[in-house]
Amino acid sequence: MGEKITVATVQARKGGPPLTMVTAYDTVMATIADRAGVDLILVGDSVADNVLGFSDTLSATVEIMIHHTAAVARARPRAMIIGDMPWLSYHISLEESVRNAGRLIREGQAEAVKLEGGRKRLPVIEALLAAEIPVMGHLGLTPQSVRVMGGYRVQGRRLEAARALVEDARALAAAGVFAIVLEGVPTIVARAITRLVPVPTIGIGAGPHCDGQVLVFHDLLGWHLDRRKAKFVRQYARLGEAAVSALQSFFADVRSGAFPSEGESYRMEEEEERAFEALLNELEGG
């Protein structure tokens, strides 16, 4: 299994070898990812749309995030566990932000938290770090800002927007975040940020030059049946289709009587079975 991944481990990976991160939501997913050798498990607020059926991430609550983070933690992975801070959990006051992050650490057993946004989040980041809570940043396409952005759009395509992203990244690194997720930004911008900041960058739709990459468990394994795949997702399996096929086979065996077989059923001891059959004959005869 190797040694437990920590903040120090992540920081030491700046410049390589590349970090691997997967977004997962429960004990089974965490066990599978950890067995495969993942470095970081992000319990994302995308649980809202990937698992719970909401249309976006905004419906995730602190309670939901604690529930799913704790489920991941129960796998006791070697990987570091990062709990996503959901929308409105760090927007109202510094006191409430620290309390919510602390709940993710204490009740959810997260080992760090992630929050979205650039320089405007510096007071929150500083407050969390003062409370000894490690923080991962998130820049670019920030899903909690979907209403403001007018949809899930690539960010930083224009010069001034790209400059702002670079300045945000530098500010987050200077404030003390241990890593930064870069989502939905042009390759050249992600490459520049990766060169200019001293902390690891982890890309999702940000090209190949980041210090690591992350994809959602459901996306890379093809769990969704009818969802349009994002350009940056490479699908390594089609488990959703495989699951449908497996269930169809099960239903067919039930309908035909092929399941369960004798080998999949339990028996009484032979003497007890004969006695029970005699009792049954009496009951039926009576």
Rank of each mutant, 00 (worst) to 15 (best):
T69A: 00
S265C: 08
R191N: 14
G263H: 03
E273H: 08
S256N: 03
E3W: 06
L279I: 12
I133K: 01
L159G: 12
G102N: 04
S256M: 09
T61Y: 07
S59Q: 15
V216N: 00
G16D: 03
P186D: 10
V7T: 11
P208S: 05
A243M: 14
R228P: 13
I41K: 00
L115A: 05
G240R: 03
V28W: 09
I105A: 08
P143Y: 11
A127C: 07
V146G: 01
M1N: 14
Y236M: 02
A101D: 01
V7C: 11
A75H: 09
V51H: 09
L19W: 09
A246V: 06
L159H: 15
P186M: 03
A169D: 04
G285D: 10
G108C: 00
S256R: 09
I204P: 12
S261Y: 11
E273P: 07
V7K: 14
M85T: 02
L42D: 10
Q144E: 15
R191K: 14
L283G: 13
I180N: 06
E160H: 15
Q235V: 11
V216T: 02
G118I: 12
G118D: 06
A174K: 13
V62I: 15
V181E: 13
D84K: 01
R153P: 05
A8M: 04
P123D: 07
R158I: 13
M268G: 01
L122M: 06
A252E: 15
E107L: 06
T142H: 02
T61W: 10
I202Y: 12
G203T: 00
L220N: 01
N50W: 01
V199P: 04
L172F: 04
L220I: 10
R195G: 08
H68M: 03
S55Q: 12
I66S: 01
Q213N: 14
E160Q: 14
V38F: 08
E116T: 08
G151A: 03
S249A: 15
T57V: 10
L172S: 02
T27E: 14
V254W: 10
K231Y: 07
